[in-house]
Amino acid sequence: MTLHKSARDLLAGGIFVAFGLAFGYASYGYDLGTPLRMGPGFFPLALAGFLVLLGLVIALAGVRNTEDAPLGAFPVRGFVLIIGALMVFALTIKGLGLAPALFLTVLLAAFASRRTKPLAGLVMAVALPAFCIAVFIYALRVPVPLFGPWWPM
């Protein structure tokens, strides 16, 4: 199946716009606050606006581009591993705690790409949680336990 590059860009732009609108709608359930005293809904709304803007720019580029290019196969492996990683995090954060849940999440997400070597995936699965722990637990003092009740310690 061959589509114009413009069709690919229009599809990608539409997906960005749809996600941006959905997150923007969801952010209105929280207090927005003001730019000086931001509420919990301010940042998600700003991020949603950025997604919509990015989607419109990508779609506009698609309208201007008329080159032929194959659409390519749908990356089933990547899709399953990324969605699976998000689900593992959601299901294990309370039971395992932040450190092991992040380790598992990053490890699964790292192998969504066929180009990731096992050592590189392991390095990412150690380094990214270490960075998140430093930022969220120690710097921002977010009250999330490092290890949960499921962890055998």
Rank of each mutant, 00 (worst) to 15 (best):
P145K: 14
H4N: 07
A101C: 12
Y25Q: 02
G55F: 08
L51W: 11
M87P: 00
F89H: 13
L108E: 01
V135A: 11
G62I: 03
F89A: 15
F136C: 10
E67V: 01
M124N: 14
T66I: 04
F136R: 00
L102A: 15
A134F: 10
G55H: 07
L54P: 02
A125T: 09
A48E: 00
N65D: 15
L53A: 14
P129D: 12
G121I: 08
A99W: 05
L21V: 13
K5P: 00
P44F: 15
Y138L: 15
F111E: 12
V57M: 10
V80S: 08
W151E: 00
V76G: 01
A101G: 11
L122S: 04
A127E: 07
G14N: 06
L86W: 01
L107E: 10
G95M: 07
G62M: 05
L91K: 10
G121C: 07
M1I: 04
G14S: 08
L119H: 05
P152R: 04
I83N: 03
F131V: 12
V88C: 13
Y30D: 00
S27V: 11
I137F: 01
Y138A: 13
G62S: 02
A134Y: 09
F147M: 03
L102P: 07
M87T: 10
F79L: 02
M38P: 01
T66Q: 10
P152F: 03
P129H: 11
A139W: 00
Y25T: 02
V123I: 15
A130G: 08
F43V: 00
V88M: 13
K94F: 01
L91F: 15
F79T: 15
